[in-house]
Every structure is written in C-alpha cells, then in structure tokens.
C-alpha cells in the first residue's frame, strides 16, 4: 500500500515536470515567433529594395540597419587611394549599392557573404560603417580546390548555399 502511494507520488511529479516543460516550451516558442524579425541579425537586399523588413517595420532613409548578402561578382571597385570601396550586395534576386570607407576583413571577396552595418542614403546607396565577412559551412582543403579548378569541375560553393540562405527567411 505504502509502495503504491510512493509510486503514485512519483507519477504526479513526473506529470508536473512534463507539463511544465511543455508549457515552457510553448511560451518560449511563441515568444521567439513574435520576435522573429528582431532576432534576425540582418536584412536581405530584397527586403531593403522593397522597403519592408521582416519585423514589419517600413524602411526610411537614415534608419541604421544591417544588410546581409553576397558581394556581387565583378562589382567591387576602389577609389584611387584605395580607402573607399564600392560594391553591390545581392541575394540573387535584388542588389543594393554599397559604399564603405575603411579596411575590409580578410575573407572579403566577390561571391562571398558579408554583413554590413549602416544606413541607406536618399540616393539608394547603402553607406556602410562596418563590414563583417560571413563564411559558409563548407570546408575544403586548398589542394583539392586547386585540383578541381585545374580540372574545371570547381563550382563556387557559396553561390548555391548563401543564395538560399539570404532569401529563405
């Protein structure tokens, strides 16, 4: 008799723990869902061109925000003294012109993902104050890439990966 009462108490405690976990999970899940726009680290070029962010905010020139995407191939130019950089950031759907004066991170190159902090000016150019390079999840030995390039089978991995990454939110 005493043993079964102890077992019943354990059962009750287990139910309380499970119910607590379920409710907590629901609460956090709903909370994160409500904040989904704000938790995102950056906005994509498509959102900026459309002037509408995921968080529901509309975009006005002068608002500080983060822009993320790929540096468009053949778009990178430097001023004569090498201080000011001009390039376009794209998510393979839309592209945004960017101007940045400063030192770029090592991983910055065309076709590579970047996250920029700055604001849009009234000419539709994103004036970046900070440039972060984003690297993707693919790792590859240098020799293997060189060999593939020689054989002509090398396909720039970021193009496929990050395009889906940037627009699929």
């Amino acid at each position: 008799m005493a043993k079964s009462r102890a077992r019943a108490r354990k059962q009750v405690r287990m139910n309380i723990v499970i119910a607590g976990m379920v409710m907590l999970g629901l609460a956090v899940g709903l909370g994160l869902y409500a904040f989904r726009g704000n938790v995102s680290f950056f906005a994509s070029p498509s959102e900026i061109v459309a002037g509408q962010l995921v968080s529901g905010e509309t975009l006005e020139s002068g608002t500080r925000l983060r822009l993320g995407g790929l540096v468009e191939e053949d778009s990178w130019q430097q001023s004569d003294d090498g201080v000011v950089h001009f390039f376009r950031v794209t998510d393979e759907v839309q592209a945004v012109k960017v101007e940045y004066s400063g030192i770029l991170p090592d991983l910055f190159r065309e076709g590579q993902g970047v996250v920029l902090t700055g604001q849009m000016n009234d000419k539709g150019v994103f004036m970046a104050s900070e440039v972060l390079a984003k690297h993707d999840e693919n790792y590859m030995p240098k020799e293997a890439v060189d060999a593939m390039k020689r054989a002509g089978t090398w396909k720039h991995a970021e193009e496929a990966e990050d395009a889906g990454d940037g627009s699929g939110q």
Partner: peptide, 21 residues
Amino acid sequence: DWWNTLHQPASLLRFDGPAMP
C-alpha cells in the same frame, strides 16, 4: 537555421551529410 546569423549554418549534423572532406 531559424534566423539570419553571422555564424555559419551547421557543417556536421545536417541532412545531407557533413560539409567537410
């Protein structure tokens, strides 16, 4: 996977196998 992050997505535990030789 859920949000845009600076950190890259998973290389190891993902559906189409590790993205690493």
